[in-house]
Amino acid sequence: MTDLIKAIDPRGLIRESYRIEGIRIEECRSIFLDWALFDDHEMAQAERITTLLDHYGADAPDHPMTQVMRLALDEAATPKRRGGRKGRVG
């Protein structure tokens, strides 16, 4: 494992999710949320997810965690509507 991957996933949550045989997508979502909420890296989150996908997802394209991270990237790329005053005035 590279130093960058260790820095992005210091607790090894993503790494371990790929090692759990028979893990379901619901469990991967929970693990991913835990990783995302307690992440404090300087790199942008989308870049961290892409790095993890390149490292783990290339060998496991059908793994539920790969699916969860791809969905997270898709959501991050989709602009969200902002409501209220901030949505009108920027």
Rank of each mutant, 00 (worst) to 15 (best):
M69E: 06
R81I: 08
F38S: 08
G83Y: 08
E21T: 13
I25H: 10
K80S: 11
G57M: 08
E27Y: 01
E16H: 08
G83P: 02
I23F: 13
L52E: 05
W35F: 14
M65F: 12
G12T: 05
D34T: 14
L37F: 08
I5V: 15
G87R: 06
T50Q: 15
R15W: 01
R48G: 06
R15Y: 05
F38R: 12
W35Y: 14
E47K: 15
I20M: 11
R88K: 15
I8L: 15
G22M: 03
L53T: 03
L4Y: 05
G57L: 08
V89Q: 01
G84H: 09
D74E: 14
R85C: 00
R82V: 14
G84M: 05
E47Y: 12
L33G: 00
M43N: 03
A60R: 12
T66H: 12
A72Y: 08
K6Y: 10
I20E: 11
K6W: 00
I14W: 03
G83C: 00
W35R: 05
A76L: 15
K80N: 03
A72K: 04
R24C: 01
D40Q: 12
H41W: 03
D62C: 02
R70Y: 04
R85H: 01
R70E: 07
H63Y: 09
L53I: 09
E26T: 13
S17L: 09
